[in-house]
């Protein structure tokens, strides 16, 4: 089950179609690509082994993440979904002793090559976290502009104003906060804060947006708002979302990857990744079937 391999798209369809090789092409439906504003970048992970010190947390993960699609990662707790996600924008290595072996290609460019600056990687691959984490010292406006300001991009005030408004509109937050942009962000509700974090992440216009259980701290209505937003964001960005909520994966994603571990202490592995519809209706592996139908995990 670990023999999942990155494939050039054409080879894959003809050459291999077994359960051991579940990566599929993006569906060549013209309607799906028609709404895309601009093609975002794709990510290919190759033989990724992710460690915490000497502990192997994720083993031999090879996966392609398609541009302008939502890829959901599901699996039980502790199976390495979040760890894998954090390795895609080099956030994993911030933890003491954590390291990654293998390659992660962003449109063919290895983000783990020695010449690559992790700071530049993170500017292209943004991230939204489980807990909404707006900067408490900053106002709503400053939070949205934080990525621009902190990176000291030389921009005129009017340009920043424009980006802030566009990002907040993009996050469906503008109408709720336009009259109180100078108020501290901590005054917003949890769902609003999470949308603010999405606006903050998109303000620097990354290519890829990683979301680590972005709705787990939110109520169902705020969750739905975020899911709608994700559906719109994929026009501009490639999105990878980790979720514990299988309905959410089924609703909001185009592809779904299933992570699992044999037993506690073993490394997590990517069992299967395929089109969401297939994973939830007719997965190739019994293990996946058991999980998505709620028989374990």
């Amino acid at each position: 089950m670990n023999q999942t391999e990155t494939m050039k798209e054409k080879e894959m369809v003809d050459a291999q179609a077994g359960p051991a090789d579940p990566i599929m092409d993006p569906p060549a439906s013209p309607s799906a690509t028609a709404t895309v504003d601009a093609l975002a970048k794709r990510i290919d992970a190759e033989d990724l082994n992710i460690y915490y010190g000497s502990f192997l947390a994720v083993k031999d993960c090879t996966v392609s993440i398609h541009p302008n699609k939502v890829t959901a990662l599901i699996g039980s707790s502790g199976c390495g979904k979040s760890t894998f996600l954090r390795s895609l924008n080099r956030m994993h290595e911030l933890i003491d002793g954590a390291r990654v072996e293998g390659r992660v290609l962003l449109d063919g460019m290895d983000i783990y090559s020695p010449s690559m600056d992790p700071v530049l990687v993170r500017q292209q691959i943004g991230m939204v976290f489980q807990q909404p984490n707006p900067f408490p010292t900053m106002s709503i406006y400053e939070n949205t502009a934080a990525g621009l300001r902190l990176n000291r991009r030389r921009l005129k005030k009017t340009e920043i104003d424009g980006i802030v408004e566009r990002s907040l509109r993009g996050a469906h937050l503008w109408d709720e906060v336009k009259d109180r942009l100078e108020k501290p962000a901590s005054g917003l509700s949890g769902g609003q804060q999470q949308r603010l974090c999405i606006a903050r992440a998109t303000a620097i216009e990354p290519e890829v947006l990683l979301m680590d259980e972005p709705c787990s701290a939110l109520d169902p209505i705020a969750t739905l708002a975020i899911e709608d937003l994700i559906n719109e964001l994929k026009k501009r960005y490639t999105i990878v979302i980790v979720t514990h909520n299988m309905q959410q994966a089924a609703r909001a994603s185009d592809y779904t990857g299933f992570f699992n571990i044999e037993k506690s202490g073993d490394p997590g592995v990517l069992v299967e990744i395929d089109e969401t519809e297939k994973i939830f209706s007719n997965p190739s592996l019994q293990e996946t079937e058991d999980y998505v139908s709620g028989r374990f995990g």
Partner: peptide, 25 residues
């Protein structure tokens, strides 16, 4: 730590994160 991570995820270098996010907080 979530604030530091938020800042790193925006592509802010560590020293600026300390200066502009951690210290003001």
């Amino acid at each position: 730590n979530s604030l530091r991570e938020a800042s790193y995820a925006l592509g802010v270098p560590k020293w600026l994160t300390v200066l502009r996010v951690v210290l003001p907080t």
